[in-house]
Design a binder for these strands. Structure first.
Lengths: 343, 343
DNA sequence: ATCAATGGTCAAACCGCTTTGGATGGCGCA
DNA sequence: TGCGCCATCCAAAGCGGTTTGACCATTGAT
């Protein structure tokens, strides 16, 4: 059932039917009701392809996922961000199109998506320092929102980000207040922007108390269980082992925990751990009582906000770039306690 | 730059240019080369919207993700499956469109996707027993592939699945061979089809050795760390605690591990654990040596295969439904060992 | 009574491509 | 020389909507 058929069934022109269904004012209310009723009766749905061609709009948002290097890193939080963003899209009649492409095709993919008119806007994931994709998207001239920020970007752009620096600064201060002086950082890969900011927050807090960051207890790697485990294991074997860990994610925190327990140390007493908790739906940090003390910020909520921002930008192309900085909460769990007395 | 402009620049008709670019034979090779060169020079990309309308094909595959109940369960493996499928799509010029919708809108979403012609086919996720979506999609008349199977489905349909029954049967047998007699099952939610099959494999193996399954040490819940922890904790506190656990995923296995270690027991000696490992890229089961003994099957590979199958079905609508049953490998890690001597 | 304004409707153009059904001209062959 | 056959190319008709620009019949004002 298409517009033309529906119109002829009603003895009306396609023009009028189209207008009736789309709420245009220049159509008699009685007519509109007749049309609406007939549309419902025949279960009429306008053809997406035709609407898109006729309006010139894609009613779709693109998310480009590079396959090789960056993918592993983004993966755990990806599903939740997507869920949040997707929720917003479908609520607003937009489709979400995901492009999973080899790293080397990424640039071309952005260009193609624009040139072929497949999407009206895009979300940029996992920005790195001086990320080349930002000037690229500006040059291409397509609305976009970055999930995160890119230190060093010259042009203004829209983003939604967590205040990673502040979150890790507060977490570090919290540990310092508990008397910890050897605090280890098990960070994500530091070409990622968020990891850089977290390290900055960490070192800022130390320096503010007159402590020098010790690179021997600062690791930077993918945020997997295994790499958290390895980093912690090595550090715990040192002459002056840390009494506390700051881990970049729930998963790497679990690796740290494994290393600690393997050594026969008690978490929250011998060793304190604070993680960053993205509040993933399948990776809850406990239920009533959090397992880990954590800086928490919902990545799903970030997805929702980024999507809303992007749709707003598409609706008002003239507006200035928008930014949204989310503060993480510091929630106290069972994994932290006063620093053990020195021997 | 569109077809018409390009054609007039070349002094050709749009017809010829279109044919030249799409490799039709009725065009002179010299002409074709001229067209190709000009297209590259002007960076011409045909407009997706127009192609779709003209051909009547969407060149897109839909994945519907229900928000509320099922989402949590699917989430951890979702990203990897998507990555695998997406890889195949972009290799074949297809888009992947994700619809994240509230549970109650799911049926309507499938209908709409078809009626509006947004996609050429769909992947069905997380099938349950007697899943109503399968007859729905058959009725709607759109090509689809199920990731998993649905016990009780009357009609034939295409699917890609892991041999879950066999995997858990083998894992159970392996534990039995090691002398374990009290084996616990920490399963996923048993309305999910895969969970049902795993339980069947588990009980089959026990029964084959003359052991009666004990429902007191068979749990079924979401596959989260916390729920794995809770189930294991409760079981370990029983009068006749299990000496081995079969956990449904890496994540719930980590919960089991936490409960075991909290009790001061050694994994691989006091307690054995086998998990099912979906081979997620961000959740590797160790590197050289696996942490957990596991039944392993790559969900990413499953995504790739499901996507290929779907594209094949779309290309050959007349073919019979296809099926692909993947066998999981049983890999030996550090989490299993002989059953401890009875006291 | 006349005319402009207005409400309601429609025909037709358009979006940018594919595809059908000719047209044209050169060539081989009788 | 004449004819049919290819090899090439093109005009035009879709695809299924939206949107512009009339058109017509009322209505209200003058």
């Amino acid at each position: 059932m298409n517009l033309k058929e529906l119109a002829s069934q009603l003895g009306l022109s396609p023009t009028t039917v189209s207008r009736a269904l789309n709420g245009y004012p220049e159509v008699n209310e009685d007519t509109r009701e007749r049309v609406m009723a007939a549309a419902k009766r025949h279960n009429y749905r306008p053809n997406t392809k035709a609407i898109r061609l006729a309006t010139g709009r894609a009613f779709a948002i693109g998310h480009v996922i590079p396959l090789a290097t960056r993918h592993e890193i983004m993966n755990p939080i990806f599903a939740d961000f997507i869920a949040g963003a997707g929720e917003t899209y479908s609520k607003n009649g937009y489709d979400m199109v995901l492009s999973v492409v080899p790293d080397e095709d990424e640039t071309q993919t952005y260009r193609d998506l624009k040139a072929r008119g497949t999407v009206d806007g895009m979300i940029l994931h996992a920005p790195q320092m001086d990320d080349a994709r930002i000037p690229l998207l500006v040059e291409i001239g397509i609305p976009f929102v970055v999930h995160g920020r890119a230190t060093g970007a010259a042009l203004p752009y829209s983003w939604v980000d967590v205040n990673n620096r502040r979150a890790f600064q507060r977490a570090t201060e919290f540990l310092l207040d508990l008397g910890h002086r050897r605090i280890a950082l098990v960070n994500g890969l530091e070409n990622m922007d968020f990891a850089i900011r977290r390290r900055t927050g960490f070192t800022d807090a130390l320096l503010a108390r007159g402590l020098a960051p010790d690179s021997a207890i600062m690791a930077s790697d993918e945020m997997t269980e295994v790499s958290g485990y390895r980093a912690a294991k090595a550090m715990l074997a040192m002459d002056a082992p840390p009494t506390a860990f700051l881990a970049a994610s729930m998963i790497s925190g679990m690796g740290v925990r494994r290393a600690v327990e393997e050594r026969g140390l008690a978490i929250g007493r011998d060793i304190s751990i604070i993680i960053h908790d993205d509040d993933l739906s399948y990776m809850k940090n406990g239920e009533d009582v959090p397992i880990f003390t954590a800086t928490r910020s919902s990545v799903r909520e970030a997805g929702r906000l980024a999507a809303e921002m992007l749709l707003d930008i598409i609706a008002h192309p003239d507006h200035a770039p928008q930014q949204r900085l989310l503060e993480a909460e510091l929630i106290i769990g069972q994994s932290t306690g006063p620093a053990p007395a020195r021997n």
